[in-house]
């Protein structure tokens, strides 16, 4: 999978309440509606700045906090192509794979807002076109690759009716 887009930069410990506030997520299952409020408490017009395929880049512990799957879903529906961070909170990471949002762990210290990136998930590399740098990516465990390849956990279960990852 090849992805290309510009960077929206965030810091450490971006929690799920910032990604999508609890006050919205209980109201509806309409993800296009939820997507409009993504990251609202950190940047009130973030949604309007996103172009299809852009990246969210952050430092450590991205997605900490609640187990709400609406968090990766809101990011995906807002048009973000992948989230790239130094590290992720465990539940968010799993949820993202399960719903088919690519999440990439790597050293993000050299990536700045507005940089143009090209991501090759298969090869495990990110090319920072603005800075002319190549960043190595931490590979996903096999079970996650399998689930991502099936289009997420729903696709996986439709195909096999149960877990088929061993």
């Amino acid at each position: 999978m090849e992805l290309k887009g510009k960077v929206h930069r965030f810091g450490s410990d971006v929690n799920t309440d910032y990604i999508i506030s609890g006050k919205y997520k209980f109201k509806t299952l309409d993800m296009n509606e939820l997507a409009k409020h993504v990251m609202e408490d950190l940047d009130s017009d973030f949604y309007s700045k996103i172009e299809q395929g852009d990246f969210i880049v952050a430092d450590s512990n991205f997605g900490c906090g609640s187990s709400r799957e609406q968090a990766p879903l809101a990011i995906k529906y807002a048009g973000i192509g992948a989230v790239i961070a130094t590290s992720f909170a465990r539940i968010f990471y799993r949820n993202a794979i399960n719903i088919g949002l690519p999440v990439i762990e790597c050293d993000t210290s050299g990536i700045e807002a507005g940089d143009q990136l090209e991501v090759d998930l298969k090869k495990g590399v990110i090319r920072n076109l603005t800075k002319d740098q190549v960043i190595r990516v931490k590979p996903l465990p096999d079970v996650m690759i399998k689930i991502l390849n099936d289009g997420g956990l729903v696709g996986h279960f439709r195909k096999y009716g149960t877990f088929n990852v061993e």
């Binding site: 609640s66 187990s67 539940i91 799993r94 949820n95 399960n98 956990l153 729903v154 279960f157």
Partner: peptide
């Protein structure tokens, strides 16, 4: 729900997951 870890206090391995994981768990 992320605070599922609460039941560790009574010696259970309990952990939070998302909705799709819960669905897979209920199914299988």
């Amino acid at each position: 729900d992320s605070h599922t870890c609460t039941y560790g206090a009574i010696n259970a391995f309990a952990t939070g997951v998302g909705s799709t994981d819960l669905a897979a768990a209920m199914a299988s």
